[in-house]
């Protein structure tokens, strides 16, 4: 089976024009690949650039150097140099992303927030809602909340809406940015189950997990980000 995601020699730094153009190196020489059905976890201390790597893989951060080769639509594309339109298409069809925080949209119900990625991919609204209901139930979100906009939910409730939204689609690549950060033990276990199911379905997963138990339970492999510390190459 072809490798869905190959990262080679990716470098990233921030140039702070408001501070006299000082350059903050983040990572350099980032190289790894993820196989289908595998869950890799980015390891390393805080500030090592784990989140930045994830955001580059999602097109949310620009890439200075290197390539991010993604299997997309029957071909290979380099996400690092792709046009915005291609990145959008990759997000719709190939790479899913579960962030730590839900960016809430006012007045849209939790159920529709979860169903939206499916609707965007062309599924009919009722079918999408049905899947959203079953996911929200699995994540133990009280049914009385489903019809409400998540803006006023607690952190844990919002996080579960966010997870459901991230897991509802069948993207072949899924990026997880501390999805379990504010969950209790019972719901952490649900997320572990969801990840296992994705693996079984052949999805390539890359995540950041600070929770050691969860990491133990899901990680096939840990990629140590400190190896890509920007200072090293320069030396």
């Amino acid at each position: 089976m072809a490798t869905p995601l190959v990262v080679s020699d990716v470098a990233k730094s921030f140039t702070m024009h408001l501070r006299d153009g000082v350059t903050l190196p983040v990572v350099t020489g980032v190289s790894f690949s993820i196989r289908a059905g595998e869950c890799a976890v980015l390891g390393g201390p805080s500030g090592a650039g784990k989140s930045s790597i994830l955001k580059m893989l999602y097109g949310n951060y620009a890439v200075d150097e290197g390539q991010i080769i993604v299997q997309h639509g029957g071909g290979l594309i380099d996400l690092a140099s792709a046009s915005p339109r291609t990145v959008l298409s990759v997000r719709r069809h190939t790479i899913g992303y579960v962030s730590q925080f839900l960016r809430t949209v006012p007045r849209v119900s939790a159920l529709d927030v979860v169903a939206e990625p499916l609707v965007e991919r062309g599924e009919d609204r009722e079918g999408a809602r049905e899947k959203a209901r079953s996911l929200l139930a699995q994540l133990n979100l009280p049914e009385k909340l489903w019809a409400l906009p998540p803006a006023t939910f607690s952190g844990g409730e919002q996080q579960r809406v966010n997870i459901a939204r991230g897991f509802i689609t069948e993207h072949p690549i899924l990026l997880l940015d501390e999805p379990t950060a504010s969950l209790d033990a019972k719901n952490r276990d649900v997320v572990v189950e969801l990840i296992a199911a994705k693996k079984a379905a052949g999805v390539a997963l890359l995540g950041i997990f600070h929770d050691l138990d969860v990491r133990e339970a899901v990680a096939d492999r840990v990629i140590d980000v400190s190896a890509f510390a920007a200072g090293k190459i320069a030396a």
């Binding site: 921030f14 024009h17 408001l18 097109g59 949310n60 951060y61 620009a62």
Partner: peptide, 22 residues
Amino acid sequence: ESGLTDRVLDDPRAPYTQLLVS
């Protein structure tokens, strides 16, 4: 500067964009 909206806002590259976002 131009690009994906979330990219421009989360990782602004041009000095002026950085000023706007900040």
